[in-house]
Structures are given as structure tokens and as C-alpha cells.
């Protein structure tokens, strides 16, 4: 009995090794993720070109793209007015250097006449059950601010345009936050901000100081490294295909034997 069981275990382990080798996800290893955020209050809708190709059309203030997968290396990012069809001079362009496996936010910041591209490195991980957040001061004329608990400590101190802070990892939950000047005067009430577990956020303070608002982007939520294995093969009549695959034939046979054995046991119990 023990022997059959041990053999069974071996088969299962072997087949999972094969599964990994046969289906290893090999794209993505040389790529980086890039998203582009329009945080310029008075800039028109824009098209974003990467290496001369339009990747986003008609992005308006407070629009952010999904992450684009781009090969690691240098890329020419250019922003055109949406009505220019990519012709003429871009409003702004920059060379973006990205590393494999990293994620980036490229934010168009400032008023149109001083438009700049601010690049930040995004986090794609968070400790189990925790939440992670950073803030960006993307309001061109707002003063230096702290972000903290109302009546409590600052979580982020001394952020001035166009800074994007490092992330802080916190307990998940709902926080009564505020944006305040360094002397403690509240400039934006963020009471009841819920930060979910296993999630990474960027909270950007955008628009002009008179109309300051918080723009929350979700950078990451928990996800597995691949799609789950949701089948065991029992509904497939083509048992022959299994048996033809060399080593697979042997494994499958033993597997079936082991299974039949266990089935019998289960009927007795």
C-alpha cells in the first residue's frame, strides 16, 4: 500500500515538473511595464507616441493608460496634441530608459507652458495582507505639503511639486487622511480613504491649488504568477493522446492505477 502511494506521489511531482518546463511563461522577462498619466490641468487631450507609434489617443486630464509592455532599453516618448495627428513638433518628448522587470509611471505634469514628464518607479509587490501607498505632488502652484492622519502624524512630509514620494507599507483599512501645509493648515480632506489589503496605490494631488483634488491610481493588486490549474482531465475521452506521449504513457498508467486504488478505498469508507 505504501509503495503504491509513494509511486503516486512521485508521478505527481514529476508531472508538475514537466508542466513547468513545457509551459514556462517566457515572455515578459525582457520587458518593462510603462503607464502614462495626464496630470496637467490645462493641457488639452493628447496622443502619446512611443518610438514613433501612437499608443494612446485622446488622453485627457486625469486619464492614465493601462501598463504597456515595452522591451527594456531606451524609448522615445512624445506627447502630441490630440488634434495634431502626430504631425509637427510634439508638446514634449523625452528618452525613457527602462529596465526589465520594472514598472514605471510617466506623468505629464505642470501647466501646458511648462509641461514636463516626471518618471517614477512603481511597486508591483506588497507584503501579504498589507497595503502600500505613495503620494505625488502634481499640483503646479500648490505649496509644499504633508499628507497625514487628521489630528495625527504625517505619513509623508515635505512633498513639493513635482515630487512623487517613496511608498509606505501600512495596515490595510480606512484612514482619515488630509493634505496639509507644513504649518498644519488643511488643504484637502481625505477622510474615509480605504486602502485595501494586498494592493499598491499612488495618490496624486492634482489640479491647481484652488481646485486641488486627489487622483487615486491602483498600481497593483495581488495576482498569481500564472493561471490556476482548473482541470484534471477526466472528461477527456481521448485517453490515447495521453498514452502516446512516451514517458507520459508510463506516468499516466501508474497514475490511473493509483487513482483506481484510492477510489476503491474511498468506496469502502
Amino acid at each position: 500500500m505504501k509503495k503504491v502511494f509513494a509511486l503516486f506521489v512521485t508521478v505527481v511531482l514529476l508531472s508538475s515538473v514537466f508542466a513547468l518546463e513545457a509551459f514556462a511563461d517566457n515572455h515578459g522577462s525582457d520587458e518593462a511595464m510603462v503607464r502614462i498619466a495626464h496630470a496637467s490641468p490645462d493641457a488639452p487631450a493628447v496622443d502619446v507616441y512611443v518610438n514613433g507609434e501612437a499608443v494612446v489617443e485622446g488622453a485627457a486630464f486625469k486619464d492614465a493608460t493601462d501598463y504597456l509592455n515595452l522591451p527594456a532599453g531606451d524609448h522615445e516618448v512624445a506627447i502630441y496634441p490630440a488634434d495634431a495627428n502626430g504631425e509637427g513638433d510634439p508638446v514634449i518628448s523625452t528618452t525613457l530608459t527602462i529596465e526589465a522587470g520594472m514598472a514605471y509611471t510617466v506623468a505629464a505634469v505642470g501647466m501646458l507652458e511648462n509641461l514636463a514628464l516626471e518618471v517614477a518607479t512603481d511597486s508591483m509587490e506588497v507584503s501579504d495582507g498589507m497595503t502600500k501607498v505613495r503620494v505625488g505632488h502634481l499640483s503646479p502652484d500648490a505649496p509644499t505639503v504633508d499628507v497625514g492622519l487628521i489630528g495625527g502624524d504625517a505619513l509623508f512630509s515635505g512633498a513639493s511639486f513635482p515630487a512623487i514620494t517613496d511608498y509606505q507599507e501600512l495596515e490595510a483599512g480606512t484612514y482619515d487622511l488630509e493634505i496639509r501645509t507644513e504649518d498644519g493648515t488643511q488643504v484637502l480632506d481625505l477622510s474615509g480613504t480605504t486602502l485595501e489589503a494586498n494592493t499598491v496605490y499612488s495618490v496624486f494631488a492634482v489640479n491647481t491649488a484652488d481646485n486641488l483634488e486627489a487622483w487615486v491610481l491602483t498600481d497593483y493588486t495581488a495576482m498569481p504568477s500564472e493561471m490556476p490549474q482548473t482541470g484534471m482531465g477526466g472528461a477527456q475521452s481521448g485517453m490515447n493522446t495521453m498514452l502516446m506521449t512516451g514517458l507520459g504513457a508510463m506516468l499516466a498508467g501508474v497514475l490511473l492505477a493509483g487513482f483506481a486504488f484510492n477510489r476503491r478505498r474511498s468506496h469502502q469508507s
Binding site: V12, S15, F23, A252
Partner: peptide, 18 residues
């Protein structure tokens, strides 16, 4: 909602599509 689909590949121990 996720499940498997496509042929079952016994040597890989999984279906070939999701």
C-alpha cells in the same frame, strides 16, 4: 470566472488553454 479548456495534456498534467 476561470476554468481550463482545450485538450488535456497528460505529460504536462494540465489543459492547454484557460
Amino acid at each position: 470566472l476561470l476554468t481550463c479548456t482545450g485538450l488535456y495534456n497528460a505529460s504536462a498534467g494540465t489543459h492547454e488553454e484557460r
